[in-house]
């Protein structure tokens, strides 16, 4: 039945280089709706570059990206909910300001849901970002991003460098809040931590996809976990 819809994401013949450094090479990728997809690969494999291309923060040298059938632009941006690996909310803002901003710009933002999640984190909406710890800021950003009912959620290293308790919080937030018709693309280099929540895994190596399979298929066919397979594929 999904074949009647557009794929959530389509990348065709994508190329990106910085000077002589070729980061993404002739990459093709298609994601269907309702999936949680892990984008895994060692540092420097091009994960963040690919994500930034999808979110139109970078411009590809060649190739095409379609989101829900739309070329990248104001229309596609309304469909994508992006969690960058850095904090992008200005220091002067209060948490409530950020909520207002998301509500103003994104028609699919659910303010009540966000307030509820913030209350459970015991974050005061009147607090300024300046006064929040880095970990709390990141959680607030996750709350904002997951409170949207987007077609595609793009999460860049959401569990990189956090403690196990925060990791559990982040994963359960992602699992309980995403829109079931939407697809989540999570980049990470910590596969064992996210493996159980994934439907599919994409292995990215030197800017190319070396494997794109469902996690169950990998386990059934290879008889090993995605994490074990990863260690094999990316052995130094």
């Amino acid at each position: 039945m999904d074949s009647f819809k557009h794929p959530v994401l389509q990348c065709r013949g994508l190329n990106k280089s910085y000077g002589r450094h070729h980061v993404i090479k002739d990459l093709d990728l298609e994601l269907s709706p309702g999936r949680i997809v892990g984008l895994v690969g060692p540092n420097g494999a091009g994960k963040t570059t690919l994500i930034k291309l999808i979110c139109s923060l970078l411009t590809a040298q060649s190739g095409q990206i379609l989101i829900g059938g739309h070329p990248v632009g104001a229309g596609s941006k309304a469909l994508v909910s992006y969690l960058p690996e850095r904090t992008y909310l200005a220091d002067w803002m209060k948490v409530a300001d950020a909520l207002e901003l998301f509500a103003d710009f994104y028609a699919d933002f659910d303010r009540e849901k966000a307030l509820d999640m913030l209350a459970r984190l015991s974050v005061d909406p009147k607090a300024r970002f300046k006064t929040l710890s880095k970990g709390t800021r990141e959680k607030v950003q996750l709350v904002l991003v997951m409170s949207r009912k987007a077609l595609l959620y793009v999460l860049d290293e959401p569990i990189g460098g956090v403690d196990p308790a925060a990791r559990d919080y982040i994963l359960s937030t992602i699992l309980t809040n995403y829109n079931e018709e939407g697809t989540i693309l999570i980049s990470t280099h910590l596969i064992s931590d996210v493996e159980t929540v994934l439907d599919e895994a994409i292995f990215l190596k030197d800017g190319q996809i070396v494997l794109h399979k469902s996690v169950d298929e990998i386990r059934q066919e290879e008889g090993k976990s995605v994490d074990e397979l990863f260690r094999e594929v990316f052995k130094c």
Partner: peptide, 17 residues
């Protein structure tokens, strides 16, 4: 499905299956 998926920390699709 949602509750079980959250308890198990698995994907709702996996729990469904």
């Amino acid at each position: 499905v949602r509750e079980l998926a959250q308890e198990a920390a698995v994907n709702p699709n996996t729990m469904q299956k």
